[in-house]
């Protein structure tokens, strides 16, 4: 199933965006841990607190390593395609998913953009159906807006029997 690739892929700047966001959150995590170490030292908390903190540091370091590898892997794993009947998404690193959503079952489409995504001129698209919601994490602004229009147009169609 790993060989299956759908028509479109994410914006090439997705890994960079992901790296920056992950780096920021990692810095925050380490800052918090640093403060905790200081507080621990200052108030002389029991020894087991120190060991828990060491454990958290170890986990965070693993997290950092993962956050370096993850964006590229995720970027490679992601692909999507759509026609007038279905929106198909395929993604996942350890667990590969392939989702098929009929256009007629799409309830709403929205795009959003954070400050980092804005810097790279990308947007994410969120598609909501009656039973679930899916996010395409980063598309070039123009493509995202186009896709939103297309999805919204197809989603207008409704099946008889609803």
């Amino acid at each position: 199933m790993h060989d299956i690739k759908l028509e479109h892929s994410l914006s090439p700047s997705f890994p960079t965006i992901k790296w920056i966001t992950e780096a920021i959150s990692n810095i925050i995590v380490f800052a918090v841990l640093g403060v905790l170490f200081w507080v621990n030292d200052y108030f002389g908390w029991p020894t087991w607190v120190f060991w828990i903190l060491i454990g958290l540091v170890a986990l965070s370091i693993l997290g950092v390593i993962w956050s370096i590898a993850e964006p590229v892997l995720l970027y490679r794993s992601w692909s999507y395609q759509f026609d007038d009947e279905y929106l198909q998404l395929s993604y996942g690193i350890l667990k590969k998913e392939w989702v098929t959503v009929p256009m007629t079952k799409i309830q709403s489409v929205s795009t959003s953009q954070g400050p980092i995504m804005k810097r790279y001129n990308t947007r994410s698209i969120k598609v909501e159906t009656m039973g679930s919601s899916h996010v395409i994490p980063a598309l070039e602004q123009q493509i995202a807006l186009q896709l939103r229009e297309v999805l919204a147009e197809y989603a207008k169609l409704k099946e008889v029997d609803e």
């Binding site: 199933m1 667990k95 998913e97 392939w98 098929t100 679930s132």
Partner: peptide, 13 residues
């Protein structure tokens, strides 16, 4: 069926 997906973990692969 309003949505369908299939998935595969490394072990399943």
């Amino acid at each position: 069926v309003i949505e369908m997906s299939y998935s595969q973990t490394r072990l399943q692969k």
